[in-house]
Design a protein around this nucleic acid. Structure first.
Lengths: 225, 225
DNA sequence: CCTCGATGATCAGAATACGCATGGGGTGCC
DNA sequence: GGCACCCCATGCGTATTCTGATCATCGAGG
């Protein structure tokens, strides 16, 4: 994980950085609010540790600023102020966690890693899986029960969309918008044709169909009810 | 936000639920680990509050289990154990935050909201519920007391409209306008027919009918008075 | 308490809309 | 020019919806 520390106390910062590096992370340090803000907005981090009291721009302001800019990097706020009210303020400013000094390094590490886990879990997925149907987005391959299936580009996008919404009913309008990028109704059976072709490839040779028609509504991808 | 509380202490659970509801959230409660695990895996929540000590399946096990199943719903662990080591364990198990009892409600609220903030602004309503009758708008499924009911498109729209106006009397004109998009009176018993069919599916196999006729006015959906 | 008109429920067949498969034609890329 | 891919039109089979007839229920008034 790439972690940014914004902390003015040299010694505390060094101690933290050392510990995080030993835990296998990649650490950048900023000694004041201005530098911190600069790094936070120009670089990409998996998590940040921000001291609340800083010379120049203070900790809460930094958090508010980067949140305002749409940056959602998880932030752990460090502070000597431990009153409930201070903590609530820290979280309201957009912090994801708040730790009061003095703290145990083991706890800080665990919390940072908990924060990072959340975002990495929400990172763009590279594989999709629904029942025995698997799709590898990078390799652009699809297989069912280990058997390769090859799809044409449009079919691939269609199936990807269905898999991302597995279990939900997907309407024709949603498909037109998201798979075809049509913002109107072509008044033809375009979608039906592609679904039909996809079925030939995905469901034909298998007992359990995965693509189901929901009459009057659209289609859905899931195991039979 | 939809929030699940898993806590065995009745009083603590009720207090928490009340506070969260007042803050505008939608709260479900489970009083033991088994029920909690069931809800956590079958429903979709924006965040969960889990007590660490629970009869049956304990808190940490619950978190580990749902994480193992690929569920990334943010979890805040509540515990009386406040030692650094306990906290680290809680976070390592997959918790996103850890709060030691006794805690201030304001802080818990701030932390829960910080957790929820990350997982997308809570979406428009996707489930409707009236008594034991539930409708999932995304999956287009309906169930009563856990038993699946399948409806035809028009029946589905009709029931959706009734559920959205549960407790109110819905006139025939309202139904024609909103379910059929007719802006005139077809002079047939169209609506009666559909209500009749809906009753067969929704009320037939149950003691308590939910669809009631209001003679001279229309229909209403609610538990018997 | 019974009758009668009005209102609502149920049923079954007819009409309609919807979804599916298939083949042909067009378009753009090697 | 040939090939791959995508889109459109047609005709067919079937699920769903609507209609009209008949039957049941309600409630007011005698």
């Amino acid at each position: 994980m790439r972690i940014l520390i914004i902390e003015d106390d040299q010694e505390a910062s060094a101690y933290l950085a050392k510990g995080l590096k030993e835990a296998g992370h990649n650490v950048d340090q900023a000694g004041n609010g201005t530098d911190g803000l600069f790094l936070a907005t120009t670089e990409r981090y998996d998590a940040m540790v921000v001291d609340r009291m800083l010379p120049g721009v203070d900790g809460l302001t930094i958090v508010q600023t980067i949140r305002g800019a749409g940056n959602t990097t998880p932030v752990l706020i460090l502070s000597a102020l431990g009153k409930v009210d201070d903590r609530v303020k820290g979280l309201k400013a957009g912090g994801d966690d708040y730790l009061v000094k003095p703290y145990a390094f083991a706890e800080l590490l665990a919390r940072i890693e908990a924060l990072g886990r959340r975002t990495s879990a929400s990172q763009p997925e590279t594989r999709l899986k629904v029942e025995d149907l698997e799709m590898d987005l990078l390799a652009r391959t699809v297989s069912r029960s280990g058997q390769d299936i090859d799809l044409q580009p449009r079919e691939f996008r269609l199936l990807e969309y269905l898999m991302r919404h597995a279990g939900q009913v997907v309407t024709r309008t949603m498909l037109l918008e998201n798979v075809w990028e049509y913002h109107f109704d072509p008044q033809t059976n375009l979608i039906d044709v592609h679904i039909s072709r996809l079925r030939q490839k995905v469901d034909k040779d298998f007992d359990q169909p995965l693509i189901h028609t929901v009459r009057g509504a659209g289609y859905t991808l899931r195991a039979a009810r």
